[in-house]
């Protein structure tokens, strides 16, 4: 089986700083692939390079067999990659429903169809009752789920989640984990997530990649990776698992 997302030797530097150096990874269809690593490791830069926000300085990125490096973000999304932002960015002045309708309009020409799709997604993410609230008035956990809902409404094959668990209470993390697991199981959605909350990583991920100073230091099944001495030294430290 060939990879759905294939990153090969990608580098990205900002002036003198090498944010991502020669990173390669393959995400298989239906994987839940976690990228972990300390702050400043280059996780979000790697993410933004995949999404088309940055053009890589070297290497290639392919999605479903098609080169996407250097494509603008809207085109990458149209090809089937949905994303969330680390610092949530819902459309603040619009209602929750309108936020998700906008996502759904990518593949629906009629606003009514998009509305039906959006309502379905909102139910899935437990946001249906808040659908008429302004996005800006939601609590952080709700805004995080709204980001996921809006991305999902674009009907992606691959969902990129940038720290959707950060700032959530353990019960909310479990709820998000349950939603992700369900999406992955029932819709066959492939997920790549950047995450610091190890509780979520261990519960969700089928594969884990550890990034440190822009380079891959370990990759593999979650249970193996967390026992890797280098990973413990550079990232996990004394954190209890």
């Amino acid at each position: 089986m060939s990879a759905l997302l294939s990153v090969a030797g990608v580098s990205k530097r900002f002036r003198g700083l090498l944010a991502v150096g020669n990173v390669s990874l393959d995400v298989m269809e239906r994987d839940i692939f976690a990228i972990i690593g300390p702050n400043g490791a280059g996780k979000t830069t790697l993410f933004n390079t995949i999404c088309g926000v940055f053009r890589p300085d070297g290497g290639t990125i392919a999605f479903a067999g098609e080169r996407i490096d250097g494509h603008p973000p809207d085109e990458v999304c149209r090809l089937g990659i949905g994303r969330t932002f680390q610092l949530v960015r819902p459309f603040p002045g619009l209602s929750v429903l309108d936020n998700v309708i906008i996502g759904a309009l990518l593949h629906h020409r009629s606003v009514e169809d998009a509305r039906a799709r959006a309502e379905e997604v909102l139910r899935r993410l437990d946001l249906f009752n808040q659908r008429h609230q302004r996005a800006a008035s939601l609590t952080l956990p709700d805004r995080k789920r709204l980001e996921v809902a809006r991305a999902l409404a674009t009907q992606p094959r691959l969902l990129l989640l940038d720290e959707v668990m950060a700032g959530l209470r353990p019960t909310e993390v479990d709820r998000m984990v349950a939603i992700m697991t369900e999406l992955n199981r029932t819709s066959g959605l492939t997920i790549v997530l950047i995450e610091h909350v190890m509780r979520a990583v261990m519960a969700l991920a089928t594969r884990v990649l550890v990034l440190h100073h822009g380079a891959v230091i370990a990759q593999g099944a979650p249970a193996e990776v967390v026992r890797d001495p280098q990973v413990i030294k550079s990232y996990l430290g004394a954190e209890e698992l």
Binding site: F85, L106, A151
Partner: peptide, 18 residues
């Protein structure tokens, strides 16, 4: 809807394929 998305947050609008 696309206009409002661009008005509210252009980067987020691009991220949903607009």
């Amino acid at each position: 809807y696309f206009w409002q998305a661009v008005r509210e947050d252009e980067d987020a609008a691009r991220a949903v394929g607009i």
